[in-house]
Amino acid sequence: MTEPATDAPYIALKAVQKGFKIGAEAVPIFTALDLTIPRGDFVAIMGPSGSGKSTLLNMLAGIDSPDGGELRIGSARLDRMGEGARSSWRAHSMGIVFQFYNLLPMLTAAENVELPLLLKPLAARDRRARVEKVLDLVGLSGRGGQYPALMSGGEQQRVGIARAIVSDPALLLCDEPTGDLDRKSAGGVLEMLRFLNRKLGKTIVMVTHDPRAASCARRTLHLDKGQFLEERRAA
């Protein structure tokens, strides 16, 4: 899965518009945003605070929708899908990693990872086997019984990554995944993401402030005032 099957890009945004209403005032974020990402790419998106990075990622994740334009991922036209369809698309097609992990505190690490699998027709035993496998993959084998509150930030983020990949989605979205981590933990998480892209062929879109994080990506896009500025390809 290193080359795209067709010439069509995996992710395509055409003239996407998006804004927010603050009170009576409409605040535009994007007026005509274009973006294409081939399958198997690893894209870092950088830019100043408030430039719309999270808004873009949320639209790619199907938890927010464009006001206009076209947004296609694989064969799914997200801009045309209703709430219910986007919900089931999310369950099957993408994994998401948050800056603050967003683990559920009353569940153990393993149970947090298991959550997306509850949406699949899997027996309890199969679910457990898959959870073990991904916890192993992120270097947390044997820690599944622990509660998130007792884990370090780096460990919690690795649980977050395990949860994002447990149902084996082709697309992985990360919103500042190392933003809350110390240098060493951040290094571990980035290593993890690089592995998922290079070895498992996941397409990754990562929003980050951290140039070191961006250097793990295949290319970096700079977002400012609702437009991409330049493109820099990693070596």
């Binding site: 919900s87 369950a91 967003n102």
Partner: peptide, 16 residues
């Protein structure tokens, strides 16, 4: 609310 938002992000439908 927040946790419910997380579950929805993971693909849990309204009905679930």
């Amino acid at each position: 609310r927040f946790e419910i938002g997380v579950l929805k992000t993971l693909g849990f439908s309204k009905r679930r």
